[in-house]
């Protein structure tokens, strides 16, 4: 991930989280009532997820084209990924989605301690995912599979395998960046929850963060088979 993009996208994300109310009351001046405000922020968040879908859709399209063109080479490249680590990460993310969903439920039921605990659990699962991802990246680095000037691959179709790893790093990199931003945002929500900002009447920020987090999970649900499992049969078969 390039350094220039980090802060930029960070600004984007924080900007997109639905407008937070001032502390003197959750209802903003230009809305009539909370119902209108909540519906607006939910719709806004969904529209944002739509743009995220199309954003990932761009690189997915490119991936689809090359899968079509270089099927064998992509299977070859995929067989160098670690299915066990990938599966572990998938399971970790599902856990984190569960804790996130339950966090929203805790907020709806006014259970402040539970809410804080579940948010922290979600962050920890997210962190574990990133650590494992880091370990995988390190393996790839050692094996010379990081695309670019230092890419090194012995075997047939080296160029097309290079392309596969370009996609692997770009797609998982953007995904990981989304997770980092989500975790950072959640840290802020933990503080606010501990302060008692949320409860039955007002939990939209938790709910919106939940939508975002689940979306990031869904992206992984597709990346996992597209990148990891694709080569698994090849690896097992030979």
């Amino acid at each position: 991930m390039s350094q220039q993009h980090g802060p930029v996208t960070a600004a984007v994300m924080t900007g997109t989280m639905p407008d937070m109310p001032d502390h003197d009351g959750p209802l903003q001046h230009h809305f009539d009532d909370m119902a209108q405000q909540n519906e607006s922020s939910a719709l806004g968040m969904w529209l944002f997820l739509l743009t995220e879908l199309m954003f990932f859709g761009g690189v997915m399209t490119a991936y689809a084209v090359y899968r079509y063109l270089f099927n064998a080479a992509f299977a070859e490249g995929a067989s160098h990924l670690d299915v066990r680590l990938g599966t572990t990460n998938t399971i970790i993310l599902i856990f984190s989605s569960l804790t996130m969903a339950l966090a929203v439920r805790a907020a709806q039921m006014d259970k402040r301690k539970l809410l804080v605990g579940l948010l922290i659990a979600t962050m920890l699962f997210g962190g574990a995912f990133l650590v494992i991802k880091g370990i995988e990246y390190a393996h790839k680095w050692e094996a010379g599979h990081v695309p670019g000037a230092y890419f090194h691959y012995e075997g047939p179709l080296a160029n097309h395998v290079h392309l596969f790893f370009s996609f692997y790093f770009t797609m998982t990199g953007i995904h990981a960046l989304h997770m980092v931003l989500g975790i950072g945002w959640m840290a802020w929500l933990v503080l606010r929850s501990a302060r008692g900002d949320f409860g039955v009447g007002y939990y939209a920020p938790i709910e919106m963060t939940g939508l975002y987090w689940h979306f990031v999970d869904i992206v992984w649900i597709f990346l996992f088979p597209l990148l990891y499992l694709f080569g698994a049969g090849a690896a097992a078969g030979h």
Binding site: I218, I221, L226
Partner: peptide, 18 residues
């Protein structure tokens, strides 16, 4: 098959978790 299963999983997340 892999894409089908992924779609089912995504649908579950969208409908219930989201």
């Amino acid at each position: 098959l892999a894409l089908l299963i992924a779609s089912v999983k995504a649908t579950l997340v969208v409908l219930w978790f989201m």
